[in-house]
Nucleic acid binder design. Structure first.
Length: 639
RNA sequence: GCCAGCGUAGCUCAGCCGGUAGAGCUACUGAUUUGUAAUCAGUGGGUCGGGGGUUCAAGUCCCUUCGCUGGCUCCA
């Protein structure tokens, strides 16, 4: 007899070599049906694993978080099985679980999404068959022999340490796998192939290109549908689509990856910068501007010519080579170096809305999210080592204020020294500790990415979370120990000696283009009043009211509101519809009643209408809503 | 840059096995003067992404090039 301890502390006795499944069934039929794996003494294993000694177990059911990864892992096997049935020459590489689903890299003839129905039909057949999934452990030697005809598996196994190797079989299909897996294929209730793309074996361009087939799987059709709805929702928010609909920006073949901003897009752009400037001024920043085109000698000095050359646009002018800046920092270094600095001046916080160009690979361009020309809301802070902590804290506080205004929450990640890096151990120590202590004082928990820092210094990355839960890295704070050295930047200390300043690069919006794109998706095109390109649509209900409505328009414009009047000879319904489609937050219809009473009927984007609103009451509410940069669309809400 | 898919009017899309391009919306014109999500009628608008080829004939087939989409890779 052995004793099994459950998470709630209960202990039950069972016969030796009982399996997890039998334990589950002994508790309840339902648990027997819904359990798919178990945590045995802290390790997640198959439900069929036999238990030989007193153990702690936690059953994992289809309702547990761990369950979904096991499911998707099995789903990847089921997909691979279906493909090997349909494509006899297919050679399997790897098939991991990823966020939102799984993929399998397979060496096979190129396929397209039109092949999916056929594969899915085979997958569903395998699921219906409820094929038992068996784990076997065999010596490495035997595994190598078994996978003689599968070059990728063979390579993977040969790299494993000697000893036994686990393989999983379901009917004629066997795959090298650590596991665990579902008890049988019938547990995969809802599976869908998502997309296919090329991927290199081991991500190496010189190696064989494989077909990477993506899929996702859930324990129920309902969850799958919910997930597909989420993707649908994300698609609806696509800034490329909304940007065109709302006439914010466009792209043209003549300048691939370089956005053109339309007047309405520029309204948002300018408001973002206006706000940025106001907050930075409060935080003690100065604003600077450096040229876009700088000669080769500068880029050689900064190291970009050597390290970043393939991303830089270059040109020859009067026999001299020039490069269009991909980063603002070298220009910023020249600015600092253009005069002497005393320790009394430090910290110097020099902001720059800098236009940079980077020649990104054609395949990676994507709307405003990945462009070849963009503006960074850059700033270089020059300081003494003692000021690191307070300066980092200052940036974090600014980040909090600015993101908060848009209703974006965020989390922090610290990246430390990578293998390939410059600088001394001591410098890295000071810099990394400086960042850490600032983060600790700031008090928000953060994630550490060991070895993920820039070659010139450690950094803090700031990831924001949008309205539908997606995260985006926007802000970053990078300590740079290299550039001040290369440009021989100094300040005169209290000791009357020259000292090397510590420098940080930091951005908050990151790329203004990209941040604007994120905001489009975050708000789904429904910008809060303070940001809306057009805040109010004025709709006279007939031609006789046009001149009175124009007077109101002039009044509104005089107090700084952005207003459009719709004088087309269309029905009121049509005008309302168009204003709503254009996401104009407030629609004011002007009829004889309003003109007589001097009041407004105000319709908001949610379709609610308030009739007979007093003009001054309305303006008071409206102006304070805008001034406070409120995110809620309901201007009548007081908080 | 690599793989796959796509590119027809300002927008969304149709166009079969090759036979010489079509709808809705938009724009414009006219009528209608509208009370909270599409009034009616008419007119205009396309070197079918560019170049080359096959063919009596190419939006349709082939090659090439540019761009877009999804990935890979890169970047961080």
């Amino acid at each position: 007899m052995i004793n099994i301890t459950f998470p709630d502390g209960n202990i039950k006795s069972f016969n030796n070599s009982i399996t997890g499944f039998e334990v589950a069934k002994s508790i309840s039929d339902r648990l027997g049906r819904e359990s798919i794996a178990m945590e045995l003494n802290g390790v997640i294993v198959d439900l069929k694993t036999k238990i030989f000694k007193d153990s702690q177990i936690k059953l994992i059911t289809i309702n547990d978080k761990e369950g979904i990864n096991i499911l998707r892992h099995t789903a990847a096997h089921v997909m691979a099985q279906a493909i090997t049935r349909l494509y006899k020459n297919a050679k399997l590489a790897i098939g991991p679980v990823i966020e939102g689903g799984f993929y399998y890299d397979i060496d096979m003839e190129p396929i397209s999404e039109s092949d999916f129905p056929k594969i899915e039909a085979e997958i569903n057949k395998i699921i219906k068959e409820k094929i038992n999934i068996e784990r076997k452990e065999i010596p490495k030697k035997e595994a190598l022999e078994f996978y003689q005809g599968e070059p990728y598996k063979h390579e993977l196994i040969s790299e494993l340490s000697d000893g036994t190797i686990s393989i999983y079989s379901q009917a004629e299909f066997t795959d090298l796998c650590r596991g665990p897996h579902l008890p049988n294929t019938g547990f995969v209730k809802a599976i869908k192939l998502m997309k296919v793309s090329g991927a290199y074996w081991r991500s190496d361009q010189t190696k064989q290109q494989l077909q990477r087939i993506y899929g996702t799987a859930f324990f129920s059709k309902k969850e799958l549908d919910e997930y597909l709805n989420f993707l649908e929702e994300a698609k609806k928010r696509d800034h490329r689509k909304i940007g065109a609909q709302l006439d914010l920006f466009s792209f043209h073949d003549e300048a691939a990856g370089m956005p053109f901003f339309h007047p309405k897009g520029m309204v948002i752009w300018n408001l973002l910068l206006e706000y940025w400037r106001a907050e930075h001024k409060k935080a003690g920043y100065l604003e600077t501007k450096t040229p876009i085109l700088l000669n080769r000698a500068l880029w050689e000095k900064s190291g970009h010519w050597e390290n970043y050359r393939q991303n830089m646009y270059t040109s020859v002018i009067d026999d001299t080579e020039y490069a269009i800046k991909p980063m603002n920092c070298p220009g910023g270094m020249l600015l600092y170096g253009s005069k002497n600095h005393s320790y009394k001046e430090l910290p110097i916080r020099a902001g720059e809305i800098g236009l940079v160009h980077r020649h990104e690979l054609s395949g990676v361009l994507s709307g405003l999210f990945r462009v070849r020309a963009f503006h960074q809301d850059d700033a270089h802070i020059f300081m003494t080592p003692e000021q690191i902590q307070s300066e980092i804290l200052g940036v974090l506080k600014l980040v909090e204020v600015i993101y908060g205004t848009f209703g974006l929450s965020f989390h922090l990640e610290l990246s430390t020294r990578p293998e390939k890096s410059i600088g001394t151990d001591n410098q890295w120590e000071i810099a990394t500790e400086g960042l850490k202590s600032a983060l600790n004082v700031y008090g928000k928990s953060y994630k550490i990415n060991e070895g993920d820092g820039a070659f010139y210094g450690p950094k803090i990355d700031i990831h924001i979370k949008d309205a539908i839960g997606r995260t985006w890295q926007c802000g970053t704070i990078q300590l740079d120990m290299s550039l001040p050295e290369k440009f021989n930047l100094v300040y005169i200390g209290q000791d009357n000696e020259k000292h090397r300043p510590i420098m940080i690069h930091r951005v908050i919006y990151g790329s203004i283009e990209r941040f604007l794109g994120i905001l489009v998706e975050h708000f789904a095109g429904r910008f809060p009043l303070w940001l809306a390109p057009v805040q109010i649509a004025l709709l006279p209900i007939n031609d006789e009211l046009v001149s009175y409505t124009n007077e109101i328009k002039a009044d509104f414009e005089n107090i700084g509101l952005r207003v459009e009047i719709d004088t087309r000879t269309e029905s009121l319904n049509k005008k309302i519809r168009d204003a709503q489609i254009n996401q104009i937050p407030l629609i004011i219809t002007i009829g004889q009643k309003e003109m007589a009473a001097g009041s407004f009927s105000i319709r908001t984007l949610d379709g609610n209408i308030k009739f007979g609103v007093n003009k001054n009451d309305f303006l008071n509410v409206l102006l304070s809503h805008i001034k406070d940069k409120k995110n809620n669309m309901d201007i009548w809400e007081t908080k």
